[in-house]
Deep mutational scan, measured.
Amino acid sequence: NKEHILAQKEVLTPIEYEHYVKHLFDIGEITKELYIELSS
């Protein structure tokens, strides 16, 4: 869920976080809207 993803932002580097969010989007775990929101 969104809270879990945002928690990852605390422990990952910005680049790792971007890759993580992109991966979730690629596998269909999150919607495009959520992907855009989380990567901003």
Results as ranks from 00 to 15, higher is better:
6 L>N: 05
10 E>G: 13
20 Y>T: 03
24 L>N: 01
18 E>R: 06
21 V>G: 00
6 L>Q: 09
21 V>I: 11
13 T>G: 11
19 H>G: 13
36 I>F: 09
32 K>G: 09
25 F>E: 02
13 T>R: 07
4 H>W: 05
2 K>L: 14
22 K>T: 09
15 I>S: 14
25 F>T: 01
34 L>K: 05
1 N>Q: 14
15 I>Q: 12
40 S>V: 06
40 S>E: 12
1 N>G: 07
28 G>F: 03
21 V>P: 00
13 T>L: 10
3 E>Q: 12
8 Q>N: 08
21 V>W: 02
33 E>W: 04
4 H>V: 15
2 K>D: 05
35 Y>N: 01
33 E>L: 05
30 I>Y: 00
35 Y>K: 02
39 S>T: 14
26 D>L: 12
38 L>K: 00
14 P>L: 13
30 I>A: 00
15 I>P: 13
22 K>M: 07
17 Y>P: 00
2 K>Y: 12
37 E>V: 06
16 E>Y: 03
39 S>I: 06
21 V>F: 02
25 F>V: 03
35 Y>P: 00
19 H>C: 08
27 I>G: 09
5 I>Y: 08
4 H>M: 15
12 L>D: 01
16 E>R: 03
2 K>V: 13
39 S>Y: 04
24 L>T: 01
23 H>N: 13
13 T>P: 08
15 I>A: 15
19 H>I: 14
34 L>Y: 07
19 H>A: 14
16 E>P: 01
23 H>I: 04
18 E>P: 03
16 E>G: 06
16 E>F: 03
9 K>Q: 09
37 E>N: 03
5 I>F: 05
37 E>L: 06
34 L>S: 07
12 L>Y: 07
30 I>L: 07
7 A>T: 08
15 I>D: 15
27 I>V: 15
16 E>L: 04
36 I>K: 11
38 L>R: 00
28 G>I: 01
3 E>K: 09
17 Y>V: 01
6 L>I: 11
37 E>M: 06
6 L>A: 08
15 I>G: 14
21 V>S: 00
16 E>T: 02
17 Y>M: 03
29 E>W: 15
1 N>S: 15
7 A>S: 10
32 K>Q: 11
21 V>E: 01
25 F>N: 02
36 I>A: 12
29 E>H: 13
35 Y>V: 03
5 I>T: 03
35 Y>M: 09
2 K>C: 07
24 L>A: 02
28 G>W: 01
27 I>L: 13
26 D>M: 10
23 H>L: 10
36 I>L: 15
23 H>A: 13
20 Y>A: 03
22 K>H: 07
38 L>D: 00
19 H>W: 13
28 G>E: 04
35 Y>R: 02
25 F>L: 12
39 S>W: 05
31 T>H: 06
36 I>M: 15
10 E>N: 08
3 E>L: 09
7 A>I: 09
24 L>Y: 02
32 K>A: 11
30 I>R: 00
31 T>A: 08
27 I>Q: 15
5 I>S: 02
14 P>D: 15
5 I>K: 02
11 V>L: 09
2 K>F: 15
34 L>E: 12
32 K>N: 13
9 K>C: 04
20 Y>N: 02
23 H>T: 10
7 A>P: 03
25 F>H: 05
6 L>V: 08
31 T>M: 05
31 T>D: 14
3 E>T: 09
14 P>F: 07
11 V>P: 02
32 K>M: 15
5 I>H: 06
11 V>Y: 11
25 F>M: 11
22 K>E: 10
8 Q>S: 08
32 K>S: 11
35 Y>I: 02
15 I>E: 14
13 T>V: 05
12 L>H: 03
34 L>T: 13
31 T>P: 07
11 V>C: 08
18 E>V: 08
23 H>D: 09
33 E>K: 07
3 E>H: 14
5 I>Q: 02
19 H>L: 15
39 S>G: 04
21 V>N: 00
9 K>W: 03
4 H>L: 11
9 K>I: 09
14 P>A: 14
11 V>R: 14
18 E>M: 12
2 K>W: 11
30 I>D: 00
12 L>K: 07
33 E>D: 11
13 T>Y: 03
40 S>H: 13
33 E>A: 12
33 E>F: 04
30 I>E: 00
7 A>Q: 11
29 E>I: 13
8 Q>H: 07
6 L>C: 02
2 K>T: 14
26 D>V: 09
19 H>P: 01
9 K>F: 05
35 Y>F: 15
34 L>V: 12
9 K>P: 01
28 G>T: 02
15 I>H: 14
40 S>D: 11
13 T>F: 06
23 H>F: 10
36 I>N: 11
10 E>S: 14
25 F>S: 02
28 G>D: 04
33 E>S: 09
12 L>P: 01
33 E>V: 06
2 K>A: 08
9 K>N: 04
6 L>R: 08
32 K>H: 14
11 V>N: 12
26 D>Q: 08
23 H>Q: 12
30 I>K: 00
5 I>D: 01
12 L>W: 04
19 H>Q: 14
35 Y>L: 09
3 E>P: 06
26 D>S: 10
37 E>W: 07
38 L>V: 09
15 I>L: 13
29 E>G: 09
39 S>R: 10
4 H>N: 15
15 I>N: 14
7 A>W: 02
17 Y>F: 14
17 Y>K: 01
22 K>Q: 11
33 E>M: 06
27 I>P: 00
27 I>N: 13
20 Y>D: 00
36 I>E: 06
16 E>I: 03
31 T>F: 03
18 E>G: 06
7 A>G: 11
